[in-house]
């Protein structure tokens, strides 16, 4: 499933130090930790690797020839790509002012050379733990509490990313917008707790599709699913499966309640004007609006007047 909280693979530790014996020593001393060690022999190489490899933690030497560690740290902290990396200074200088300056610039810790092996390992572990919690929190802030799906903020950010990827690699990308039909009536008739149950179930259905699909709660009873590398025909099939799944769902309430949803589908190729995530959302929304107009419980493709997916038995 593309939506669960991900467990990062082996965390990466980048060592930036211009002394080869230090790299060799650290590789040996940290070999039993569950980390991948990357080595940069200079400040500029370190900055480049930090951007490209996204390490969780950087061990940074203060005194380097080309650029000192303070400068490297402030560059890491001003680049959005690297500012969340936990930086530990390593230095042979016992100077208190160096430590203060490093911590003030945003370093999380300070290790003195020569290393006390046990202390070195403990400090690296502690930084990794903190980084893990930080990433979990960051991810939590992008997850909708009720549905467990990505929230709107994430949706917008991710859609922008997927649209640029699609343009760059000349690949399709589709967007599916979906809205539960007559949801207000469900809430009024069965109460809000039941309404929440419906939202939760809908979220499960939308996220139980293909692993590459990114299901988000757009707001209220509206959902958006990003389908990378997928054309509109395939996206319509995905939407149709979701539509059929919610329609056939049995509910723990008296009577034969049938909950349905309407779907609007669009791919980047079909949008009017220059391709962008705003245009894609607008077009998928327009298709969704038409699905509502056509009696709900159906899938509509943007820009295709006649072609409607079949309606369910009740629709």
């Amino acid at each position: 499933m593309g939506n669960g909280v991900f467990e990062p693979a082996t965390p990466k530790l980048l060592v930036i130090d211009d002394s080869e014996p230090i790299h060799r020593l650290l590789r040996v001393r940290l070999q039993h930790e569950r980390i991948e060690i990357l080595s940069a022999q200079s400040a500029s190489e370190g900055l480049r690797m930090a951007r490209e490899m996204h390490p969780e933690v950087v061990l940074l030497d203060i005194e380097m020839d080309e650029m000192d560690g303070f400068e490297v740290l402030s560059r890491l902290k001003t680049d959005p790509e690297t500012q969340q990396i936990a930086v530990i200074f390593i230095s042979a200088t016992g100077d208190t002012m160096d430590r203060v300056r490093g911590l003030d610039l945003g370093a999380v810790d300070f290790i003195s050379k020569p290393f006390e092996v046990v202390e070195l390992r403990a400090r690296v572990r502690s930084a990794l733990r903190m980084q893990h919690l930080f990433r979990m929190l960051e991810q939590k802030a992008q997850i909708d509490g009720l549905s467990g799906l990505w929230n709107r903020r994430y949706f917008e950010q991710r859609l922008q990313q997927e649209v640029s990827e699609a343009i760059r690699h000349k690949q399709p990308v589709s967007l599916l917008m979906c809205d539960l039909d007559r949801f207000k009536r469900i809430n009024d008739q069965y109460g809000h707790p039941f309404g929440d149950t419906v939202i939760e179930r809908m979220a499960q259905i939308l996220s139980s599709g293909r692993t590459s699909d990114i299901a988000c709660r757009y707001g209220g009873e509206e959902f958006g699913v990003i389908l990378p590398n997928t054309g509109v025909a395939e996206a319509s099939e995905v939407a149709e499966r979701h539509r059929a799944a919610i329609e056939s769902q049995a509910w723990p309430v008296s009577g034969d309640l049938v909950v349905t949803a309407s779907f609007g589908v669009c791919d980047l190729e079909s949008v009017q004007g220059p391709p962008s995530q705003e245009a894609l959302v607008a077009c998928a929304d327009a298709a969704l609006y038409r699905a509502k107009e056509r009696g709900r419980n159906c899938v509509q493709r943007f820009g295709r007047e006649a072609a409607t997916q079949r309606k369910g038995p009740g629709g």
């Binding site: 002394s19 014996p21 230090i22 020593l25 001393r29 030497d61 230095s91 042979a92 050379k113 020569p114 290393f115």
Partner: peptide, 8 residues
């Protein structure tokens, strides 16, 4: 460099 490495 020796100051930093030798002890290690």
């Amino acid at each position: 460099q020796m100051k930093g490495a030798a002890g290690g």
